[in-house]
């Protein structure tokens, strides 16, 4: 975290002629530079590798799972980890915990990514238009945003689940609706800041018009903080999904989900702690990894505009 201050303090020094040997042309070079800075944070890098492994595991879930996650065998109820070919034991209905975890991972990641990306897309649309256009449209859009902000997120979940039934789609929608608002405000704030920067005025003096200025000059420069927010939003969405399951508003059982596994596990903490511990540990690790990656992204973007 010392980098920006250090560079700021030696403001007396000229920018070395060729500091970062950023190769390539166009915007690719920019991203490559950010990637290089990201990789300097080892914790973030390890976390990223972990997340990539999680994603692979989710995609290849049918190959990795040792059992059918939905297959019940009450005679094998509450087996200890390692017994009878069940790596992490079985739950009260005799389902394989490991397999359910892997398929639950699928649910978690789908919910996390899809909900956040949908929210992001909508937030960019609203925030960018509001921030750039200003005036009446801005008042309308941000007024709408503020109204949405006034509703508690769980309210949407209750309504959607009531209307659509308990499904992954309902959960995703509920989370997206609850989280685009903050994002939109962030996008708008970024847009407003960038709109006042000299290069935007210079571009307008060159004759650049609205959409070009908004999409090609403002948006790319606003992406840093937005991506950081998104990278923290994904674990948030995963946690929300678990929370909804805990309240009985989550994914419909028997579809495996970490939230419902946790809920079931809590009832058997005394008899079979692994039922609760296995999803809890994986859950915690996943959230940590996402947060560390988020930190890494933030640091990588932190020095943008300054030579490393």
């Amino acid at each position: 975290m010392t980098t920006p201050e250090m560079e700021a303090t030696i403001d007396d020094n000229p920018v070395p002629e060729s500091v970062a040997e950023a190769p390539g042309g166009g915007q690719q070079g920019q991203w490559r530079l950010i990637w290089r800075r990201f990789t300097m944070n080892k914790l973030a890098l390890v976390s990223l590798v972990f997340i990539v492994l999680l994603i692979l595991a989710a995609i290849l879930a049918p190959l990795i799972a040792t059992h059918d996650p939905l297959y019940l065998d009450v005679s094998k109820s509450l087996l200890r980890p390692g017994h009878e070919n069940h790596l992490l034991g079985t739950d009260v209905l005799g389902r394989d915990v490991f397999s359910r975890l892997i398929f639950g991972l699928r649910t978690a990641l789908i919910v996390g990514f899809v909900a956040e990306l949908a929210a992001l897309a909508f937030a960019i649309l609203i925030g960018l238009v509001a921030g750039y256009v200003g005036g009446r449209p801005e008042q309308l859009l941000m007024g709408f945003t503020d109204v949405m902000y006034a509703f508690p997120g769980y309210l949407f979940a209750v309504i959607l689940v009531t209307v659509m039934g308990r499904s992954v789609l309902a959960v995703i929608l509920a989370i997206a609706i609850a989280s685009w608002v903050g994002q939109a405000r962030l996008v708008r704030a970024q847009t407003l800041t960038l709109k006042g920067r000299d290069f935007i005025e210079a571009a307008q003096a060159m004759g650049a018009k609205g959409p070009r200025v908004a999409l090609r000059y403002i948006l790319p420069n606003a992406m840093g903080p937005i991506l950081v927010a998104t990278s923290f939003g994904i674990p948030g969405a995963i946690a929300t999904e678990a929370g909804l399951s805990l309240l009985g508003l989550g994914v419909q059982p028997p579809t495996p989900s970490w939230g419902s596994m946790l809920t079931e596990g809590i009832a058997y903490t005394q008899v079979a702690p692994h039922l609760m511990l296995a999803p809890a540990i994986l859950f915690a690790l996943t959230l940590l990894a996402f947060n560390w990656v988020g930190d890494g992204i933030r640091e990588a973007f932190d020095t943008t505009g300054r030579a490393q």
């Binding site: 920018v15 002629e17 950023a22 190769p23 070079g29 920019q30 300054r306």
Partner: peptide, 11 residues
């Protein structure tokens, strides 16, 4: 040096 970014140049 056209492929470099403005910040890599002196004032």
């Amino acid at each position: 040096r056209g492929h470099q970014y403005p910040r890599q140049f002196s004032g």
